[in-house]
Computed example of a mutant assay.
Amino acid sequence: MMSIYENVIEDFHLLHPKLKQRYRITPENAFRGKGVMSEISGGSFVTRLLCRAGTIFRCFFPERGRDIPFTIENKIWLTKKNTPVAEWNRTFFFPDKRRHFDAVMIYDEKRGEIIDFFGHPPILISSLYFKAEANGSLSIISVKQWFPLFGKKIPLPKCFYGFSVVNESYDEEKGCFTIDVHVKNQIAGTLFLYKGTFQEAGEDND
């Protein structure tokens, strides 16, 4: 079975071999990793208050800090109609709190794109654009966004978008994946950003 990401990542062949392996997740091949976020920052006082509400949905959180341990789990499961669903579970271990940033992604065959549902139940929906860069890294950019309401997707005005730019790469010298995420709004500026490194669970951490 081909991973849903192989269907949408432009120039998939350009990815570093470790990233190819990471994004070839199927029902039989999950990815689990652990690492450290060197920085989690961004967001005004009001933004952080809104993020606090997101903790109810295991999505978004107000805490910020440096050198925060985290784990990530990516796995695929099939619906009754055999539609693959990619589950993303991220856990951040702050000194006095454990926070989550969970989502599920599906492949929209008609649009040929990945749709990301943030939270349980979802509180934000976004379409994503994936592209393999010439240096072997992967860029992920949010495109359109919706608010879920009574089973429908309500389009959000662009002024309410949380535009996200994600870059994942593999550092050969350090033997680890790198992650850099920046989410911003046209009016409020930076809402949230984090960057760090991680390794696949079971790999040598030395």
Rank of each mutant, 00 (worst) to 15 (best):
G54V: 05
N82E: 12
P69G: 02
C59I: 05
R66W: 05
D67T: 06
E109F: 05
L138P: 07
E113W: 03
F93R: 06
N74K: 13
G54S: 05
I106Y: 08
P69K: 04
R90S: 06
P122I: 06
P121F: 12
C59V: 09
F70M: 08
R58N: 14
H120W: 03
F93W: 02
I68K: 02
S127L: 03
F101T: 03
V85D: 09
D108C: 11
L128I: 12
S137V: 08
P84K: 05
G54K: 03
G54Y: 07
Y107A: 10
A134S: 14
F130L: 01
F93M: 03
D102T: 07
L78K: 10
E73R: 14
K81I: 00
L138R: 10
L128G: 03
F118W: 10
I76C: 15
F57L: 07
W77Y: 15
A86S: 13
G54I: 05
G54M: 03
C51D: 09
N82M: 05
P122R: 11
I125F: 02
F101H: 06
Y107E: 07
E87P: 01
I76T: 15
F92Q: 00
F117V: 06
T91F: 04
Y129V: 08
I72E: 02
I76G: 12
M105W: 15
L138H: 06
A134H: 09
E63M: 07
K97H: 13
F130E: 01
E63P: 04
K81A: 14
G54R: 04
G65C: 01
R66H: 13
P62I: 08
C51Y: 02
N89Y: 04
D96R: 13
G65P: 01
G119A: 05
A132Q: 01
T91K: 10
K80R: 14
D96I: 06
D108Y: 09
I106G: 11
